[in-house]
Design a protein around this nucleic acid. Structure first.
Length: 441
RNA sequence: GCGCCCUUCGUCUAUCGGUUAGGACGACAGCCUUUCACGUUGUAAAGACGGGUUCGACUCCCGUAGGGCGCACCA
């Protein structure tokens, strides 16, 4: 049986680095096992789900290089869920409850105050047929709960090892709302069965759900998938990531000009026993992918680390990997400036430095020196040795050396006191521009 | 409150009872570059705390502290 995984966001917001990590882990798993990756929109909450968010999520994961083999929408499968619900009702697996959300809330508060369990007390199970029709006569509509067998569910989690949850400690999950709409749990289980999902890789906020989902899966005659629950990411303050989205969203990372492979590398390697390093090619991550390398402890996500990884990735990218993004440029340009950039967009800055019509007046004490240097400029053609030829000559003909020799040249040639090696920059600027920048003698 | 999980250099981690506790990122320093950066070489840097078990605990057990997650008619 081939591996089929799914990434199941609900389109009620954009994804951030934490969600993206889940998506990436699933993606790597599917590529490693030559299986399928299904993007499933969990949009059962029609009120909060929007097409815009769904499109945004598609854009985000596409930017990360994830290409779903299949896309599904739960909102298009309500008919199927209705069939299953009817069947479950017929089998007595579901029972109607008439408490309002407020009543349940108050009940929980009371239970909490007493320090006891907060689970649903199954009061509705004791309702007689007469009591039920009396409630319905008042206009009350039931919501439906799944009656949990009070047994212990055990499974082997690929990341956390042997797990068990005692269903007796859980409330019977509400599967169908009062208005007839479905809660996440049931559609998720039905889809996992219908789409033959083999592995469910998701955040550890779902571990308790797994026990209930196994129970429902079995009630529906299905085989539960293999689960792998990874720890969640926390911020530099050690607090959960979920609260603040902002700069942690994938959209903002794209806007900041980060390389998608830097984000993917960081998300895939953070919290694993592999060293965090930039991978230019997804295949390297696919080959090294192994769920057992993932730590159970929460991983700290630091934007600073991501930015550094981004710079490191850029520094190692060969010309072939970027030339399509720099159609007007040459390999010499890329090799000269790549070590000086942290974001790809900075290539424009260095291109300006090379191309601009610049005229920087040298400092008073350097005027004479610049004039001498201009006159000593070697003839073209220029190459990587021209800078040395030129400055060697100047060293011999003037009393300047070291910083006092090259800094006036750098300043007048680039207008900056820092930047790529002049040996590499000089041929890119070209003799005519160099003469122009050094002024007319 | 109850339940599950976690805790080794600043960060991500290796170690599966006996190690000079290893690596990577970062930091710092040297070299290179007649600058910065890149690159390169090197240095500093860790077992949360308290009890056990054991000839011997980072490693096993218990407790404490700290952190994450869960306990919805959210997903």
């Amino acid at each position: 049986m081939s591996t089929i995984v799914r990434f199941a966001p609900s389109p009620t917001g954009r994804i951030h680095i934490g969600n993206a990590r889940t998506a990436i882990l699933n993606w790597l798993m599917s590529r490693k096992e030559h299986g399928q990756f299904i993007l499933r929109y969990d949009d059962t909450d029609v009120a909060r789900s929007t097409q815009e968010f769904a499109d945004g999520i598609a854009t985000d994961i596409a930017w990360l290089g994830i290409v779903p083999d299949r896309v599904e929408w739960q909102s298009k499968r309500f008919g199927r869920y209705g069939e299953v619900v009817a069947d479950m009702k017929a089998k007595g697996q579901l029972y109607p409850c008439y408490e309002t959300a407020d009543e349940l809330e108050r009940r929980r508060k009371r239970q909490e105050a007493r320090g006891g369990l907060r689970t649903y007390d199954r009061a509705a199970l004791k309702l007689t047929a007469d009591e039920r029709s009396a409630l319905e006569a008042q206009g009350r509509k039931p919501h439906w709960r799944f009656k949990l067998d009070h047994r212990v569910i055990e499974w082997n989690d690929l990341i956390r090892g042997p797990q068990h949850t005692d269903l007796a400690s859980q409330s019977d999950p509400v599967l169908v709302r009062e208005d007839g709409s479905y809660l996440y749990t049931l559609p998720s289980v039905i889809d996992d069965i219908d789409f033959s999902i083999t592995h469910v890789i998701r955040g550890e906020d779902h571990v308790t759900n797994a026990g209930v989902q196994v129970a429902i899966t079995e009630a529906l005659g299905g085989t539960p998938p293999i689960y792998a629950h990874h720890s969640l990411l926390v911020g530099t303050d050690g607090k959960g990531l979920s609260k603040r989205i902002g700069s942690l969203s994938i959209a903002s990372m794209r806007e900041q000009g980060l390389e998608p492979m830097a984000v993917v590398s960081h998300a895939a390697l953070l919290g694993t026993s592999d060293n965090i390093h930039p991978c230019a090619d997804i295949q390297e991550l696919v080959d090294g992918f192994d769920l057992t390398k993932i730590s159970r402890a929460p991983g700290r996500f630091d934007e600073k680390d991501l930015n550094q990884l981004n710079a490191k990735l850029l520094h190692m990218l060969p010309w072939d990997a970027v030339k399509h993004r720099l159609p007007e440029q040459t390999e010499a340009f890329w090799l000269a400036i790549r070590g000086n950039i942290e974001k790809f967009s900075e290539t424009e800055f260095w291109d300006d430095v090379i191309q601009q019509d610049l005229k920087i007046d040298p400092a008073a004490e350097d005027v004479e020196f610049i004039a001498i240097a201009r006159a000593a400029l070697p003839p073209e053609p220029w190459d990587g040795t021209t800078w040395k030829t030129w400055t060697d000559a100047l060293k011999a003909s003037t009393d300047r050396k070291g910083k006092s020799l090259f800094m006036p040249l750098r300043m007048v040639l680039t207008g900056l006191d820092h930047g790529p090696e002049l040996a590499a920059l000089l041929p890119l600027i070209g003799r005519q521009k160099v003469l122009d920048r050094m002024g007319l003698v």
